[in-house]
Write a protein that binds this DNA or RNA. Structure first.
Lengths: 234, 234
DNA sequence: CGTGGTTTTGAGCCCGTTCAAGTATCGTGG
DNA sequence: CCACGATACTTGAACGGGCTCAAAACCACG
């Protein structure tokens, strides 16, 4: 999952265009590079914890993270995932409202609140970009709310596979809809409001119906996207 | 539900402070007033429809609206509510992703995309405010995702009553936690991912346990907030 | 005082959960 | 490279929370 060598230079950063910092003009790249701190996290590592004082903002360079919330009794819900170019922990609330954990090896640029604020003052175009990206996250959350409130287990799993494959449609060798999911069955379940067992049963059902195939660790291939679309209920 | 006479003047607008336009300095109020169009909607009236071209942005002056999404087979999910001072339909997507309907008589300022854009250019502070409000909506959506994915019917209803009562804690005569819900049982169900019958059963259960009382049309009084908090699972 | 919509209540069912056991996979150290 | 233990995944059987379907009660409005 490592995307080449770590980027130490904003000017050559592969995902700058998609990321919030793409709004910064070339002359600002030095200032950007000095504001950020490139952090690395291993799979499973917690990046921020729900309830702890919120002092930083993160923008993902490579890898995938999950945002989640849980109750003392152990019930956990994954609120969403964030992919390269996306950010998390913006809210200017006192404390973080979600726990963020790395699903893969993750490189992320960390900005302290104050440095981010200064950066925004220097390059106000950033704000429009942050707003636009927030709106996109909001739209994604709305989809998820519909899915959680009104879809069946089958529809949930189908929707999940489709939306995940769209995320990776631009990846090199994935035109045959082969993809490797960075999340476990439990994580898929916690994202879809189901149990591991149900996710597993639905997946084997889809395999039996020849809609997908499931390979070794977490590799899934969509054999019949149209059918999956039908099942997903969209 | 009408909050006095309709506001024709931004300078005396009661909710300007909370709303996005509170970020505009006094000298900009004329410009603001000229950009907006004050619209009125009756209960049940559709303000924007999912799928139709998105050309406007709305900021609520008085009343409550629901944002919802539905499937051709009739399944409906209410994504959220918007209250006075809040906005909806910002996303710069081509088409609206949700249908917005008035739950009460609603007064809202309508801005065309282009006029809003010009306003933002003239008063860039607006953007910070829009971003901050979007973050708040995002946090609310996250709560809702947790609720839909992991809470029981009882917990959902209790959470709903509590969060609604907080929205109205500042209202004049509501220190005894009496409130009148502007939504029907069906709307509560569509918000919580339940059926009307289940909502009704849970409510009568809570009445039996003397946690709440339910009055005539949609008036509810919270008798034991602590107990409700316990039931809500937070 | 009827008519239509909303809310409540009841009875039975089903989807997804729970609990339990079995199998595959992975990381680790010998 | 293999043996081992831990973790992840699958499969089965039984349960139950919330749904469906149906009917009654309540209310608002003419």
């Amino acid at each position: 999952m490592r995307h080449g060598e770590p980027h130490t230079d904003c000017a050559t950063c592969a995902i700058r265009a998609e990321s919030f910092c793409g709004a910064i003009p070339l002359r600002g790249l030095d200032s950007l590079a000095r504001s950020r701190r490139l952090m690395r996290f291993d799979r499973r590592q917690t990046i921020v914890s729900e309830g702890e004082p919120a002092v930083s903002f993160f923008s993902i360079v490579s890898g995938v993270v999950k945002l989640c919330r849980s109750l003392p009794d152990g019930r956990t819900q994954i609120i969403g995932f964030r992919f390269p170019g996306e950010f998390f922990a913006v809210s200017d609330a006192e404390t973080h409202t979600t726990t963020v954990e790395a699903l893969t090896f993750v490189e992320a640029c960390q900005f302290s609140r104050s440095r981010l604020k200064r950066l925004v003052q220097a390059f106000p175009q950033i704000q429009a970009r942050l707003l636009e990206m927030s709106q996109r996250y909001l739209a994604t959350s709305e989809d998820q709310i519909f899915l959680l409130g009104r879809k069946t287990a089958r529809e949930k799993v189908a929707s999940f596979l489709l939306s995940y494959s769209e995320k990776f449609a631009r990846e090199p060798v994935d035109k045959d809809h082969r993809m490797s999911l960075p999340m476990t069955r439990t994580e898929i379940a916690d994202f879809l409001g189901l149990t591991t067992e149900t996710v597993s049963r639905v997946l084997t059902g889809l395999v039996r119906e020849k809609v997908i195939t499931v390979g070794l660790p977490h590799s899934v291939r969509l054999l019949n996207v149209d059918m999956l679309q039908g099942i997903s209920g969209n």
